[in-house]
């Protein structure tokens, strides 16, 4: 079935572009994109659309089941936790945490990794060798352990998990940026820029970065899922986002001991993670296919 908006002659070019993009997607991708839009919307407007306070509960309403179960009510669609806090509101607040962590980590790791990778690829020589050894080192450090170590030393904190996840993920940008820079470093237009006397800084900013950007965007997309899962895992282990902030991972950890009597405590936040990450991965793969088919099947770390 063709999409309804594509036949309706949209009023301006932006809408036309959007609808063309939409019709070019197959159904799984449309669902994934819709889910992702919901995720971002909920994360951004969370405090205004949340039905209850995610941090305050009432002990009278503790462990209320979700609405489709016996004894559930519409006031708590996904039920409440052991302190009577509304799970839907906590999921919404958790989306905000996940998105914040994603944006910060991808910004930090992306800038750091791109700078190092581009420098290594552009200048080559010993600079390349030293920087790439650094990348190998970063790749051979088990993330979760680093997080546990930092968590044990200074206690769980928001800054810690941003630092830890960024420290592990920058190397992927560095590898990609280096490889892509090597490919175009000796192209005619770069040589021309060099012989016309432009400084290395200008060449990198104006000629290298715009050309390697698509590949880096693919890396960033493929990393969103990794970041969400890592943040949730660290919070599950108690070294991530400190309580009482409702990270999806710590919600699962909270519900673990109630699994036999109140399964929704674990299942709802877990499903939120699964659905979000699946949507992002589907879109990431599709994007990778469009921009650079060679990347497909390689995002396994």
């Amino acid at each position: 079935m063709a999409d309804a908006t594509s036949g309706a002659n949209p009023p301006n070019a932006v809408l036309a572009a959007i609808s063309r993009f939409w019709t070019s997607l197959d159904w799984p991708l449309r669902i994934a994109l819709a889910l992702l839009v919901v995720f971002v919307f909920v994360a951004v407007f969370g405090p205004w659309i949340s039905p209850h306070d995610p941090l305050k509960g009432s002990l009278r309403a503790r462990l209320a089941p979700p609405v489709w179960q016996d004894g559930g009510s519409w006031s708590h669609i996904f039920g409440t936790d052991r302190l009577g806090r509304d799970i839907l509101s906590r999921i919404i607040a958790g989306a905000r945490i996940s998105l914040t962590v994603c944006v910060l980590v991808i910004a930090i790791a992306g800038v750091l990794g791109t700078a190092i990778g581009t420098a290594a690829g552009y200048f080559g020589g010993w600079c390349d060798r030293v920087l790439m050894r650094l990348v190998d080192l970063a790749l051979s450090f088990p993330v979760i352990l680093l997080a546990l170590l930092l968590g044990a030393i200074s206690g769980p904190s928001f800054t810690n998990i941003i630092v830890v996840i960024s420290l592990t993920l920058w190397s992927q940008y560095a590898r990609m940026a280096r490889g892509e820079t090597l490919k175009i470093r000796n192209e005619d237009y770069v040589d021309l820029a060099r012989t016309s006397g432009l400084s290395d800084r200008v060449i990198i900013w104006r000629h290298i970065l715009p050309n390697i950007a698509p590949a880096l965007i693919v890396v960033a997309t493929l990393q969103v899922g990794i970041v969400v899962v890592l943040e949730a895992s660290l919070s599950f282990l108690g070294v991530g986002v400190p309580p009482p902030a409702p990270s999806w991972g710590s919600m699962v950890a909270d519900g673990r001991s109630y699994i036999a009597s109140a399964w929704w405590l674990c299942m709802v936040p877990g499903s939120a993670i699964l659905i979000t990450v699946m949507a992002v991965n589907l879109l990431g793969d599709a994007l990778a296919d469009r921009i650079n088919p060679a990347l497909r099947g390689r995002n396994i770390q």
């Binding site: 599950f236 299942m267 877990g270 993670i273 699946m278």
Partner: peptide
């Protein structure tokens, strides 16, 4: 492949156990 790369292992463990 899609589910396996998306599901967080701590949650998968709890679900399987349940």
């Amino acid at each position: 492949a899609l589910v396996g790369q998306s599901v967080p292992s701590f949650w998968l463990g709890i679900v399987l156990m349940y």
